[in-house]
Design a binder for these strands. Structure first.
Lengths: 350, 350
DNA sequence: CTGAAAGCGCTAACAT
DNA sequence: ATGTTAGCGCTTTCAG
């Protein structure tokens, strides 16, 4: 260990080198502080020479604001989750907040995260466990739910307009003249899936054409594929299938094409929810209800900021989307529900 | 603000309540410390009653170890990246390390992350910019490259065996009797793409059958699609296309099917690299070279730990994969390169 | 506007 | 084995 592991530069050293007090250095690095321009310039010069960077940990310790936000994520193989996390990452950075990531599955101990003095916890489409809720309450860490509703626990949530979306899809399928209409859900733990299903079946029932069949995909690719297979193996297979999200819908699409030789949009209609980037790809062309991730994240950060400032955010922020008609489902003859499909946008591949 | 925002419990308070010194409380919460079982029990009891949790920030300040690892991610729409991040998240948590996430694009200021005293920075398949390298060097934050090689900057990296993989694919395609063989790369910034291409073309040349065409996808879905279109629009279109990664390959597959009516494996052969979860789906069935993400992440964390302990990790860790033969490319008649395809594994859909 | 002094909550020598 | 005493690097009164 003869390695010259020189200690990192502190404000004290900068102060000495600049011939000023240590608190002057602190002020120089504090945006709205009471420092003369001359002093600040002098300090900044020395600081950059020696490569000084304020220690955020020490600062947080004294200000009581860590600027860190915990994010609990579920399975990233759902492209919507990946997109949401990415957007959250960008917008949090823009709001000068750090993102402390952990996996909600795999039993990551939440207390480990809380110990880092996070100022809020965002649940990315994952359920709140009893233990987690208690820990957060005790530590006074507010929780924000993204793309998921509250259940027994009280917390603000930011979600897409599941009801309007599911009803729009039901109307679209009915208008397309479909008779046997099925639904593939995610699972009972998913509030989004439940809400979408409820609104969907309610609308169908209102129109005197109740849901034909119902399957659950669970949270695996294989589960989604088997759910679709069960549907298509029926003697009278459904004419249309509404899937609780695009991820399931895309798998359903593949099963219909690859295993049953059905052409989506002609032999069978498949509709998703969320409008993930892949949905617009040539080989997918999924009809779906879009959820504006950018806006959802924006509102989420607003909620976080309110929480950080001791204000009371709305209990429930619902973001409207729109029906995106592409090729995976037969269109009504009058050609009209929803807007015209969006163009594929530039999307990363690295 | 009449709200009872009681301050969080400190070790001092616990000490008072338990009638012991504050350092005793500290010791009680330090695994290998010199405390009697009785004292620890007494303290733990009081602590849990008042909901005390040690402040990790204060601890880090004094120990000089934040236990935080910065992770710079690129575009998560590439499923391999999503899977890698997820695995990293789980394994870092298991190693008692926190994951501070930020986006390498969108110019997130790296210094903001460094100020949090991260102990290492993992670059998830994203390039190191000049500025970033300098900042990290000055702050003495070691960098680890994941799925990406070094270029002008010196840093340990953990990568898949691009050379062996690309050569295996080339051999497989040659054995399949393909003559016009093309390559779609990611872009010159991607070292993985470059390495895979180099080994691929080298092997083809060695066998006296040089690469037929070469296109670049760039980092967008649209770019990958157009690259494939350019290839297929040729009067003598390629018989086989090797794509630098599965993400590109899956888009190429869709373009071939949806826009040109070609059946992969019969009319055209398409091969990817990495073996993402989607590659095994029924409608995709992509022949590819698998990269074991779990192992790659494991080795990455080993490197991080060495760095944290002042040891010198290997400059380059290369993880072997294996050729996964599925249906997207014509197989050799002698039926033999590579192993039999893996079964689809349970994979999240939430 | 600037400097001195008092901590933030905790760990790590020191004593005992 | 336990308590006492210094700080970690910084912000924030409080004087001047």
């Amino acid at each position: 260990m003869t390695e010259g592991k020189r200690a990192p530069v502190t404000a004290m050293e900068v102060a000495r080198l600049a011939g000023v007090s240590q608190s002057a250095v602190s002020r120089a690095f504090t945006p709205g502080a009471n420092v003369s321009a001359a002093m600040r310039a002098k300090i900044m010069k020395v600081a950059s020479q020696v490569g000084y960077r304020p220690n955020a940990l020490a600062r947080s310790l004294i200000t009581g604001r860590s600027h860190m936000i915990g994010v609990a994520m579920g399975n990233l193989s759902n492209p919507f989750m990946a997109a949401a996390l990415e957007e959250l990452c960008v917008q949090l950075a823009h709001a000068k907040l750090r993102l402390l990531l952990f996996s909600a599955h795999h039993e990551t101990p939440i207390e480990q995260v809380i110990q880092y003095q996070i100022e809020a916890l965002v649940m990315l489409s994952v359920p709140i466990t009893e233990a987690l809720a208690k820990e957060c309450e005790a530590a006074r860490v507010p929780i924000v739910l993204f793309n998921r509703s509250v259940e027994d626990f009280e917390a603000p949530c930011v979600i897409g307009d599941n009801e309007t979306g599911a009803r729009a899809i039901a109307a679209f399928l009915l208008a397309g003249g479909h008779e046997r209409i099925a639904f593939i859900g995610l699972g009972e733990e998913s509030t989004s899936s439940r809400e979408r299903e409820a609104a969907f079946t309610a609308y169908l029932a209102e129109q005197g054409q109740p849901l034909y069949l119902r399957e659950m995909a669970g949270f695996s690719q294989a589960g989604a594929a088997s759910a679709m297979r069960r549907l298509l193996l029926r003697p009278d297979r459904p004419e249309a299938v509404f899937c609780a999200n695009d991820h399931i819908a895309m798998i359903a699409l593949e099963v219909a094409q690859a295993e049953f030789g059905l052409e989506p949009g002609r032999d069978i209609s498949i509709v998703g929810f969320e409008d993930v980037p892949q949905a617009s790809r040539p080989g997918v062309s999924l009809t779906t209800y879009s959820l504006p991730i950018g806006l959802m994240v924006e509102r989420t950060i607003e909620v976080i900021d309110q929480l950080r400032n001791g204000e009371t955010p709305p209990a429930r922020v619902i973001i409207p989307g729109e029906l995106i008609v592409r090729g995976s489902a037969r269109k009504p003859h009058w050609g009209g529900a929803g807007r015209k499909p969006r163009q594929p946008e530039p999307e990363g591949a690295a």
